[in-house]
Design a protein around this nucleic acid. Structure first.
Lengths: 189, 189
DNA sequence: TAGTTATACGGAGGTAGCCTCCGTTTTACA
DNA sequence: TGTAAAACGGAGGCTACCTCCGTATAACTA
């Protein structure tokens, strides 16, 4: 009855990361119905390894989404103290738009499964992001660099609205970013 | 060089209808990814027959959608001259909501392909529906049965907004119809 | 450092859906 | 009633899904 756990094997951790990376590419490119065997091939691992790490397609979606959201949270937290908050916000929003672009197709597939189980970890990341952005916004407002009264929710809601108002197409990203930039310019004090 | 076309074979027409009927059930139940072989089985025809009539999954979607829209247009055109326009409109909107309920999943799959090719036939049907509803609305308004100034677009936009604002779930239909009924009651003069 | 064992790996294999192709059957027409 | 155009069915080749298990390897231990 040994309660101590062995530490996870290094190759397992590495393969998990390789799979998430490959899934980002393959699913982003081919949509949520893309072949999981293609994901395994791209990651350079066997199909069995993929299924051991991610027992279902949804589990893989979640892992990719969680990973990307975490990147976004870290990026937001690194923004504090910048001397050009408008550029920082613009850059962060651009990253977020790029993410949404690769995820549009997945959202339908996610929405049902996400309902209860993994809500918590997403909620935590959302809180981290909102906190980081709000901190940046209030400090910059106090320093007179941007207008006061703007919240993280204002930024995110505007971004989502612009993303989902436009129909997908070759010009999608350009158009969304153009309108978003106008909004961001409007943040200046 | 015979320019005259043979009239289509009776079994071909019958099988086409059987396939559309089966597709309505199977795709409505199992979503847009449901097995086309299951559709063929349900229709009682071979898989080859399905693919001859509908070379792609999208072609089958279109056929089902077109068929249902045509039903809706005929229904709308049969409403004219009723002595209870509010009930007639309510009934028609309920039919439309029932249709949307079975189609939610398909819309994403359709939207890309629909873009140019089969737009025209849908446009024709939309015009027929709008004309029928507008005719009903103006006549009833002149007769003092409902308020004036309401258009077919008002009805349709309200219905779509209510349908897509609610998240899908077991209560979806009940909730949508409840709110829609309040709106319809509000049409009375 | 070498031995032990938990852990992870790969891919064969069984199932199922996609779509094509073609020999057979049925129907419209003369 | 004969015939050829039209339509039918489903076998077959392909690919993806997912499971299972013999093999390989990394973490631990003495």
């Amino acid at each position: 009855m040994e309660n101590r756990k062995r530490k996870p094997r290094a190759d397992a951790l590495k393969n998990r990361d390789l799979l998430i990376e490959a899934a980002r590419d393959v699913l982003g490119q081919g949509g949520p119905q893309a072949s999981l065997e293609a994901v395994a091939r791209k990651a350079g691992v066997g199909i069995g390894t993929l299924y051991r790490h991610f027992p279902s397609r949804e589990a893989l979606f979640h892992a990719v989404f969680h990973h990307d959201l975490e990147q976004l949270a870290c990026l937001a937290e690194g923004l504090e103290g910048t001397n050009d908050p408008v550029a920082a916000i613009r850059g962060w929003l651009h990253e977020n738009v790029a993410l949404i672009e690769t995820k549009r197709g997945m959202l339908g597939a996610l929405s049902i499964v996400m309902s209860e189980e993994s809500k918590q970890s997403y909620a935590d990341l959302s809180v981290r992001i909102a906190a980081a952005l709000n901190s940046l916004l209030t400090q910059s407002a106090e320093a007179g660099q941007i207008r006061t009264g703007v919240t993280a929710d204002d930024l995110l809601q505007t971004m989502y609205a612009l993303c989902y108002a436009r129909q997908p197409g070759p010009e999608w990203r350009t158009q969304v970013l153009r309108l978003l930039d106008i909004f961001v310019d409007g943040l200046r004090a």
